[in-house]
Design a protein around this nucleic acid. Sequence first.
DNA 1: AATTCGGGGTA
DNA 2: TACCCAGAATT
Length: 351
Amino acid sequence: MQTEYFYTNLIQWYKKVQRQLPWRESYQPYTVWLSEIMLQQTQVITVVDYYKRFLKAYPTIFDLSSADEDDIFKLWEGLGYYSRARNLIRCAKLIVEDYNGDFPKNKKELMKLPGIGPYTAGAILSIAYNQKEPAVDGNVMRVISRYRALNVNISEVKNKKIFEEEVQGLMGGEPRDFNQGLMELGATVCTPKNAKCTQCPVQEGCHAFANQTVYQYPVKLKKIKKQTKEMAVIILEVDQTLFITKRPNTGLMSNLWGFPVTERINLHSYVDIEAYMEEAFGLKVNVNQVEEGAKHIFTHLIWHMKLYKCTLKESSQAFKKIDYPEILWVNRSELENYAFPTAFKKVFKLI
DNA sequence: AATTCGGGGTA
DNA sequence: TACCCAGAATT
């Protein structure tokens, strides 16, 4: 029978070849949840060390729920998608306050929690509670679309339910190992390029392999064009202390620290930069020098940074803060105490 | 339904 | 370069 073939072979393969990963040492809801949040759009190899540090600092959901937000961001520094870190604390507090420290055991309740969507809910239910719920991520869509030769555009969110139903149909009695096995197969064998079909436990049933059309799947129709922005990074130094500010709690790199930064509208004007510092922070500055900065690539845009080295005008006394919640003057050795995204860490080396 | 969220590995 | 990654929230 087709269903038993896929399930049996996948489970057997997974139990034999699975990678030893820190979040596979136990299947507590807390550690499953923590690892799944970190693994969103982030590769396993990147997550491992972050996960270990995080779990050591916060062994239980109760530790995390009472954590200092700045400490969380410092631990998350460099991992990206920083709203995940903010949602992590919000979720931990809700679990402790509203659920007595125990994660809900149904999809509807789980998806009400910040940072938990359909994939993560399914992962928690299947991996922690061994419930028969699908957990469809990019790996699973690639595996299933190849196995069934599905000409379904995975870029359209509405098509995800097609894959969830396929997974349900293939699922057997061990959802925990089955869902993880599906993802493991996608991550290590059924890869986007150089797929290792000779090692595949379900090669005999795979339609794409039979038709030699493996690389036609998954169908993905959406092009992202990265926009390039010329950015001015303001390096304002007074008495060997640097001016830094915490970024707003929405938008790009929210809640992390950074230097003041603004788009260079008139590429040759210092006046615009001085006006920006006056408007945003109430600081009257002089731009003394412009130096080459760094390039940084985000998901949907590219920053070309130039460094605008400034001093305060003597007449300026008031350090007003308007748009930003927090500002600080710190010396270079203190920078490491604050969480900075990688774009600004590149600047550290230049100043 | 489309866009916005990082950063690194890989070919 | 361009693509992809154990996606979710917002517009």
